[in-house]
Amino acid sequence: MTNPIGVFDSGYGGLTVLKELVGRLPQYDYIYLGDNARTPYGNRSFETVYQYTLQCVQWLFDQGCPLVILACNTASAKALRTIQQLDLPRIAPDNRVLGVIRPTTEVVGQYSRSGKVGVLATRGTVLSESYPIEIAKFFPDLQVYQQPCPLWVPLIENNEHDKPGADYFVREYIDQLLARCAEIDTVVLACTHYPLLKDKIAACLPDGSVLISQGEIVAGSLADYLQRHPEMESRCSKGGRVRFYTTDSTEDFDNHAGIFYGHNLRSAHVLLT
């Protein structure tokens, strides 16, 4: 039995993170789980997101994963801390669950010259206040402005993100963000779906703005984590194999997933009850 690194997302967005993980650390085995049957998580309650996330993490543990990455900002914001503090000691004390928010907030201040940072996210991530709280720990002088973008994930998941109609909704949210502070010079894409809109978002930002996607940052953070924790690194199997699972239609998943992952793939179905 292999011991892959688990990567979880509520849908497809985490594939943008997985792509970077495999690119940076191709020697490891990976298993991806998309909870497409219950997506989106962004507008669900904290309790619901926590219950769904814990169920998916447990499934990945059952597949032999000693380490699970929550490649979902909403799950990282609403469920990660509770799982780490309350559930892991009880269900798998030697396993670890990591998120995507902390690696991003650890470095965001290095990019901003004005000290004004924008965060584009789902409504759930914005309401959690996770980004302002975490950024303040590392860069207390940074001013953080959050902008919920509730229509972007549906646009992307319905493959409308590269159509002209998406331009209006990208411009609308960017204008709302910049209306609150015109000096924002660094913007975090705090949802793993949003890199698919990166070019459209960049076109709406002032010249010289820095746009931060999470995949590359998370991949670097994982490489550093494994180097600092040889006891965990040695438990992760190294066969270069990547497997994909979805809680919904495999046909739909396979048709959409290539947009996020960069090439065609084949998934298997998982029934979570």
Rank of each mutant, 00 (worst) to 15 (best):
M1W: 02
T2M: 04
N3C: 14
N3H: 14
D9C: 02
D9I: 00
G13D: 03
G14W: 00
G14T: 07
V17M: 02
L18R: 01
L21M: 13
L25G: 09
L25M: 14
Q27E: 13
D29T: 07
N36W: 01
R38Q: 13
S45E: 10
S45A: 10
F46V: 11
T48M: 01
T48K: 08
V57G: 13
W59N: 06
D62P: 11
D62H: 11
Q63I: 01
G64M: 00
P66T: 04
L70P: 08
C72K: 01
A75L: 06
A75K: 08
K78Q: 14
R81M: 08
Q84H: 05
Q85W: 02
L86Q: 15
L88R: 07
L88W: 03
P89H: 10
I91Y: 02
I91E: 11
D94F: 06
P103E: 09
T105V: 13
E106Y: 03
V107T: 14
V108W: 05
S112E: 10
S112F: 01
G115Q: 12
K116D: 12
G118K: 10
V119T: 04
L120G: 03
G124W: 04
T125W: 00
T125Y: 05
E129N: 15
D141F: 06
P154N: 09
I156C: 02
H161N: 14
P164E: 12
F169Q: 11
F169I: 07
V170Y: 00
L178Q: 03
A179Y: 02
V187Q: 04
V188F: 03
A190W: 05
T192C: 06
Y194G: 07
P195T: 08
P195L: 07
A203I: 09
D207P: 08
S209V: 05
V210L: 07
V210M: 07
L211E: 10
S213G: 09
S213D: 15
S213K: 04
Q214H: 05
Q214K: 05
V218I: 15
G220E: 14
Y225T: 08
R228I: 01
P230Y: 08
M232H: 13
R235I: 09
C236I: 06
S237N: 12
K238E: 14
G239Q: 03
V242T: 15
T247L: 03
L265D: 11
S267C: 03
A268I: 00
L271A: 15
L271E: 15
L272N: 12
L272S: 06
